[in-house]
């Protein structure tokens, strides 16, 4: 249950020891309160030390944790009355991207987001959160719906990438993403994107253009997967950890590069350790963003979004 990442070993060991002592205490034979207290202090220190100094690669592992909350978990914990809407009206209902309408603290919002599966069966249904063109076109349809009713769009990003397959290419994966980028740039309603787990390149950006882009503390956002980068540049997939550092994919670095606007804190050890707390943080950050955007005159929204993206990049001119 507790992840079992290698870097969490000291924590797991301390937790185990405390558990054993508690069991002893339960039997009432020995007084171990003092010892438990001391171990608990050690455990707290170990947690702060380990989770406070995660390497980029460790964050990638947390972002991919099978128990990490997914889009529909946040929707369930943060909103009321969610009605899911299905299909792109062209080809299919891609379940790697979910979407619909919900009430968030009294206001109606349109939600879109990539959705991974909890088990093998669901993962096959959801294609591990890797959408086909019809997923991007469903998101497009829902964003146009949001624009029609001037409802804010809340987009949850959690994908290893857009799916690289034969059908995806036949039906225009690139075109579907490109059209979304163009449409989101011009959408006459607020868009807040939240990177909740994996921000896998164009597949993430395809629903990720926003007036504000929020990012969870242990999420990553990258132009290429660390494994893919390592395979191309070092010809060695096992250099993924090195690639994760080199690519600067962690929230703090992306904030400095103006790629994201706000980091959302996670419960200690990662969002998977406390769904309710994670959802509360995301909700608070979202409401803050929606309040700020609510104060922007509607006529200024698209121009401001254009200027936000217009500035991004680094180059020299003599």
């Amino acid at each position: 249950m507790n992840g079992g990442f290698d870097f969490e070993k000291p924590i797991v060991e301390l937790e185990g020891e405390i558990g054993r002592l508690r069991a002893l205490a339960g039997e009432g034979t020995v007084d171990v309160a003092a010892e438990i207290e001391s171990l608990q202090k050690k455990l707290d220190a170990a947690r702060r030390d380990i989770y406070g100094n995660l390497t980029p690669w460790q964050r990638v592992q947390i972002a991919r944790h099978p128990q990490r909350p997914y889009t529909l978990d946040y929707v369930r914990l943060m909103t009321e009355g969610f009605i899911e809407l299905a299909g792109d009206r062209f080809f299919a209902n891609d379940q790697a991207i979910v979407g619909g309408v919900a009430r968030l603290e009294g206001r109606t919002v349109v939600v879109v987001g990539q959705q991974k599966g909890r088990d093998t069966k669901e993962n096959l249904l959801r294609n591990f959160g890797s959408a086909h063109p019809e997923g991007y076109r469903k998101a497009y349809r829902l964003m146009r719906l949001a624009e029609k009713f001037r409802l804010p769009v809340v987009s949850f990003i959690d994908t290893p990438g857009a799916y690289p397959g034969i059908g995806a290419e036949e039906r225009g994966q690139a075109e579907a993403i490109a059209c979304n980028l163009r449409a989101m740039a011009a959408l006459e309603t607020p868009i807040v994107a939240v990177i909740i787990g994996e921000g896998g390149s164009g597949g993430a950006l395809g629903i990720g253009v926003g007036d504000e882009v929020l990012m969870l503390e242990n999420a990553y956002y990258s132009v290429i997967s660390p494994e893919g980068c390592a395979a191309i540049l070092w010809k060695d997939q096992s250099k993924a950890a090195e690639a994760a550092s080199t690519l600067r994919i962690s929230p703090r670095e992306l904030l400095e590069l103006d790629v994201i606007d706000l980091i959302v804190p996670e419960p200690l050890g990662g969002a998977h350790r406390n769904y309710e707390l994670a959802a509360r943080e995301v909700k608070a950050a979202l409401l803050g963003a929606l309040d700020r955007l609510g104060r922007v005159p509607p006529g200024d929204l698209v121009r401001r979004r254009y200027e936000k993206y217009r500035r991004i990049g680094s180059f020299t001119e003599e």
């Binding site: 980028l181 011009a186 980068c229 990049g313």
Partner: peptide
């Protein structure tokens, strides 16, 4: 495609160029 050596800054050039094309379209 996007250039790995500039990381997410390269990725966001997709959004920047597409945003400019939205204006061209309009």
């Amino acid at each position: 495609g996007a250039r790995m050596q500039e990381g997410a800054l390269s990725l966001l050039q997709l959004a920047k160029t597409s945003a400019a094309l939205a204006r061209l379209d309009a």
